[in-house]
Amino acid sequence: MAYEKFNILNSTAVPLPIENVDTDQIIPARFLKATERKGFGDNLFRDWRFFSDNRPKKDFILNNESFDGKILVAGKNFGSGSSREHAAWAIYDYGFRCVVSSFFADIFRNNCLNIGVLPVQISDNFLEEIFRTIEENPKSEFKINLPKQQILNLSKNKSENFDISSYKKENLLNGYDDIDFLNSIKNDITSFAKKSPL
């Protein structure tokens, strides 16, 4: 599925300073029954965001009007657990284009990259400082520069570089997905398959 290209993103950020946020929190299993990729943003962090009778929980960050933006900043080890791409869909559908943390679970990171959400992994210290910056002023802006692989904490004038494979970077910059590439090497694949019988 094609997605919006990613180049440079300037935005405020939403802080979620909790560690080990798992995919069951990002999107609980009972919302995985869809047969189309629609409406997942409404159920992002469902049980942290709403009571069982659907009233919003006032103290949860997504219900706090002071905070918004296209960047989600989360505690260490974000996205562990299930392989459900629905977690990444929910984040994208809610309006986030980038997730910043000091550590990501593997499958979640891949899923994000495959649908056009940029996972930005930074040091613990840089993450701490971002949390402090947002706490001081929720309107603080951050700049995610994909071509330069750099994240800037603008109000502190500090930056850090992040890793991404050049293949995935190219895909994000152009909005390509893997199937486009795989289709272009179909002949290699079919001859490989002949060598690898069932």
């Binding site: 599925m1 392989s83 791409e85 499958i107 891949n110 899923n111 893997d178 199937i179 795989l182 694949i189």
Partner: peptide, 15 residues
């Protein structure tokens, strides 16, 4: 384990 985009990849290209 893989995500849904990858399920689509495998169905389409076995890779």
């Amino acid at each position: 384990g893989i995500g849904t985009s990858e399920v689509e990849m495998v169905l389409a290209t076995q890779c």
